[in-house]
Design a protein around this nucleic acid. Structure first.
Length: 523
RNA sequence: GGCGGGGUAGCUCAGCGGUAGAGCAGGGGAAUCAUAAUCCCUUGGUCGGGGGUUCAAAUCCCUCCCCCGCUACCA
């Protein structure tokens, strides 16, 4: 309401042991588009991503590579920073859980939880699979070929008994349920919310939050034989990055609680159950919202390491183009649902939506301004119904887009924009500027001006999803860099007639497949 | 098993009490400014099956069938 509006959003921190894949790219992309949207809409945004670098698996991988864990993570976390550059992410910070600021914050949150009586020392025992970094129930185990017990994943398990600190999660059931009840938008989409609530209703067990079986982690304060359990450490990054434990600091008071934690559907529980409990236990406010998106399949097949069909974001960006990939991922599937990445589908989007609809719209309109007006934006005459309808649609998109972005409905957002793209193409056909050029030069000017204005609106609202391409669109109508925010949408900031446009060039090329022999022969 | 989500045009999905919709794909036409792009018209569905409530149901209730998710400490 008053003063600046802020928006703090986060991706999960990615486990450095992983090679970046489309899932990582997707989560961060969604945050990036959201961040760019909010910035353009006048918000002060803090967009955080980073890497999770602790745990037994990292410790072992480092040892296997003959490296110290720290230098190992220095190396592999670079993969994720490279991904951020390739995907054109605009994150404001990149946090690593091995940074001193994070060690400090993690220990502080531990102390807060302990001081508030939520942590106690006990014993944890169970079947543990090192490879999975997970405990399994007896009932889940299967007999391996050599008589060894195996986890459902096939990993070998061993019986482990260790001293462990526990978080009193069992005490939080009612408070969590009340919290969900009071904050109906806390978990999205609704199907995930239902899952979480039913999970909590089943009753909660205390949570083991420390380990003694490895050392690569944050030491438990006053008991250095223990390291903090990976999730407590990891989740805390969201607070670390905004200044915790300095809760009175300008940063912390400005950004906390986070507006949105974007996560994959596999880790909702940690974010929607444990994390709010940890925070409330430490005397901190829970985040406002957790959105769990779906997963991608590859040409209809489930993606898995063993099948070897992992999609490398770098590959598809090299093949299709960065903005094409960004557009496809956000446009193709209702955000929250699973989606299928197929060559056929992305080519359809690239050629149908981008090249034919949007790219061609720009090209035809701008080349007419070039040809009929010597590249100078003409002065419009009085507007008629068709002009007002198109301008109204272009100027009016933003209200709808705001609702859609706040619901993380990226696909609907793009659909809303495309309604205007199609309307603009229809306007061109109906107005037939090529006829006006001969019959009604005054009217021609108005029509071309209206089209330039429509392109301006489209370019502005497309910046969050396709930053480079949208920027090129706006360059082609000579729009100054400081006139590209959402505040500039509408008649008040309309283009000034007389502006000289550069010669247009295609922004969204068609992706031409190799011609089939039959098609060749036909020609 | 329990809880939840879903089964609507060839495909992907929206609609969730008032005469079946969008995009793509298919068919026909117009136009020629443009990336052979665009625009207009159009084929196509007994809204998973059955029963019920209602003046009226894709939309509410019951039941059955099928698909998916969750059912604890794995990024």
């Amino acid at each position: 309401m008053s003063g600046r509006r802020t928006y703090y959003l986060t991706t999960p921190i990615y486990y450095v042991n992983d090679v970046p894949h489309i899932g990582h790219a997707y989560t961060t992309l969604a945050c990036d588009a959201l961040s760019r949207f909010k910035r353009l809409d006048g918000f002060d945004v803090h967009f955080l991503t980073g890497t999770d670098e602790h745990g037994q698996k990292v410790e072992k991988s480092a040892a296997a590579a003959g490296m110290e864990p720290q230098s190992f993570t220095d190396k592999v976390s670079q993969n994720f920073r490279d991904l951020a550059r390739t995907m054109n992410y605009s994150n404001d910070d990149f946090i690593r859980t091995t940074e001193p600021r994070h060690i400090r914050a993690s220990q502080a949150i531990w102390n807060a939880l302990r001081d508030n009586g939520h942590i106690y020392l006990g014993t944890y025992s169970g079947w543990y699979a090192v490879r999975d970094e997970a405990f399994y129930a007896e009932s889940e185990l299967v007999e391996g070929p050599s008589g060894k017990k195996l986890a459902p994943s096939g990993a070998e398990v061993e019986w482990v008994e260790e001293s462990s600190y526990f978080f009193d999660l069992s005490q939080w059931q009612d408070r969590l349920l009340a919290f969900y009840d009071e904050n109906p938008d806390f978990i999205a989409p609704p199907s995930r919310r239902n899952e979480v609530i039913s999970f909590v209703r089943q009753g909660l067990q205390d949570l083991s939050v420390s380990r003694t079986s490895f050392t690569w982690g944050v030491s438990v304060p006053d008991d250095p034989g223990h390291v903090m359990y990976v999730w407590l450490d990891a989740l805390t990054n969201y607070c670390t990055a905004v200044g915790y434990p300095d809760t009175d600091s300008a940063d912390f008071t400005k950004w906390w609680p986070a507006d949105l934690h974007m996560v994959g559907k596999d880790i909702v529980r940690f974010h929607a159950v444990y994390w709010p409990a940890f925070l409330m236990g430490a005397g901190l406010a829970p985040p406002r919202r957790v959105f769990a998106h779906g997963w991608w399949t590859n040409e209809g097949q489930k993606i898995s390491k063993s099948v070897g069909n992992i999609i490398d974001p770098l590959d598809i960006v090299a093949r299709y183009g960065i903005d094409q990939v960004r557009y496809f991922l956000l446009r193709e599937v209702p955000f929250g649902n699973d989606g299928d990445f197929s060559h056929r589908a992305i080519v359809g989007r690239i050629n149908g939506d981008l090249a034919n609809d949007l790219g061609n719209l720009c090209q035809r309109a701008l080349s007419m301004i070039g040809r009929y007006c010597d590249g100078v934006l003409p002065e419009p005459g009085p507007y008629g119904a068709a002009d007002l309808a198109l301008l109204g649609a272009a100027d009016g998109m933003i209200d709808e887009l705001r609702h859609e972005i706040d619901a993380q409905a990226f696909n609907e957002m793009l659909d809303t924009i495309w309604v205007v793209v199609r309307a603009a193409n229809g306007y061109v056909d109906h107005q037939a500027p090529w006829k006006l050029q001969k019959e009604d030069p005054a009217r021609l000017k108005t029509v071309l001006y209206v089209l330039a204005e429509t392109i301006r609106a489209l370019g502005i609202v497309l910046q969050p999803v396709m930053p480079d391409s949208a920027s090129r669109m706006l360059d082609q109508i000579a729009l100054a860099a400081d006139r590209r925010s959402f505040a500039h949408l509408g008649r008040a900031h309309a283009l000034r007639p007389g502006a000289r446009f550069p010669a247009p060039s295609g922004i969204f090329p068609r992706l031409v497949e190799d011609e089939k022999p039959a098609a060749k022969a036909k020609r």
